[in-house]
Design a protein around this nucleic acid. Structure first.
Lengths: 219, 219
DNA sequence: CTAGGTTGATTACGCCGTAAACATGAATAG
DNA sequence: CTATTCATGTTTACGGCGTAATCAACCTAG
């Protein structure tokens, strides 16, 4: 996959693929240059620096959400709409677990843009959609806030669980066994703690959030 | 505040203070050394590297939660207990907004340790407390999961809003005015979006989470 | 064909984390 | 009391980082 000319979106996409494969810490201007068969400084013709690159990666992914199949046709209720956005975002987090922390964490362009729906375009889409379903101004904004909080909390933790990321390594001994001698409850509940019901927990929490939004809505 | 001898907890505390003041990106071994009036390499006698330092900072803060006044005496109901933990954690996030992303984001020591209550000690305290109030094994674990998700979502976004962090700067023009011409809903709701009701939203969401936990509990 | 602008390559600078060797002073053993 | 050990901080050095500045090659317009 060799190109004649370098191009901003191609750089950003390569960076995303690289981080997906190797992790954020490995992303380096020089290494990204190598991947694109170009010298590191060539990248600066198209992006203004590392910070700009990270921002562009986040923007690319968030904007890409619009193209998700779940988003391409209109929802028939606001509940269905929220479910579609939530599930599309969840797919994004699962698809790019090493980038999602960036999406959740990077300071947004304006303080009222809340991750992960952190582009003006998305806020517009979100608020206007809810209003099309009859939400008042206040209710739409309140829903935006609680919905984004929900997504960040649920998805950031889920994404983190998908990235081994080579933790401490510590000793060469059993890498998962800490003492737990003095922690009887944790020891007893260890199996339950390990069980993964992410999908169901996500759906349940979303259902409850929807219920919460419904009942706190102006009539 | 000059000491004769360097000491691990002193290093960690200085690092926390430094990041609170200057931001994570400014934290450097050399600079931290300067603060402590010591050469950078001296730090390596007490910590094994930058990664270890960051981990120690997180641990220090999370363990410090136990000393919060809200945690020093027993709660009389599990609802009150959750409220105390939530509010203590909230104080932590507000007190160290530039470190909280680390607390939420850094890969935990074990996959079943969920930020921000990411120490075995905390999980033990949390689960055993709920069980003292009659929670079954499953319910306690389920509450741990939904509660941590809630905290991360609510507090990470709140902490982010407290860190100006010197965003793009972009042009010298009005740093907060984007066009918004093509975003009529956002434009119209701009004031509502800017309004800050974090405390109330936090309390409301917590109340609803508690209600959710109550009704999904085994009888 | 030529002039100018765009794109990538080269070179260089200062900062980073940290490995390794060294210095020093306090604790300990004889 | 002296000699030795060991813990602690210093010095030096290395490779990698982001990126400013300069340069060379190429496309494109006239």
């Amino acid at each position: 996959m060799v190109q004649q000319r370098l191009d901003r979106t191609q750089i950003v996409e390569s960076a995303i693929a690289f981080v997906d494969a190797c992790g954020l810490g490995e992303l380096t201007m020089r290494r990204l240059g190598t991947v694109l068969e170009v010298e590191a400084m060539a990248l600066y013709r198209h992006i203004s620096g590392r910070a700009d690159l990270l921002e562009a990666m986040v923007d690319e992914l968030i904007d890409g959400l619009f193209d998700d199949e779940l988003m391409t046709e209109d929802a028939h209720s606001w509940e269905e709409y929220l479910q579609r956005v939530a599930n599309a975002t969840r797919k994004l987090a699962i698809g790019h677990p090493r980038i999602f922390p960036l999406i959740a964490t990077q300071p947004p362009a304006a303080p009222w843009l809340r991750p992960p729906l952190r582009s003006v375009r998305w806020v517009e889409e979100f608020l206007s959609s809810l209003q099309r379903f009859g939400f008042s101004d206040r209710d739409a904004v309140a829903a935006y806030k609680s919905f984004t909080s929900f997504l960040v909390g649920a998805l950031l933790l889920h994404a983190a669980s998908l990235t081994p990321e080579a933790i401490g390594d510590e000793d060469a001994e059993a890498s998962s066994e800490t003492d737990l001698g003095q922690y009887p409850t944790v020891q007893r509940l260890q199996d339950l703690l390990r069980e993964d019901h992410t999908q169901r927990e996500f759906d349940d929490a979303l259902d409850d959030l929807i219920e919460r939004i419904r009942t706190s809505r102006d009539k």
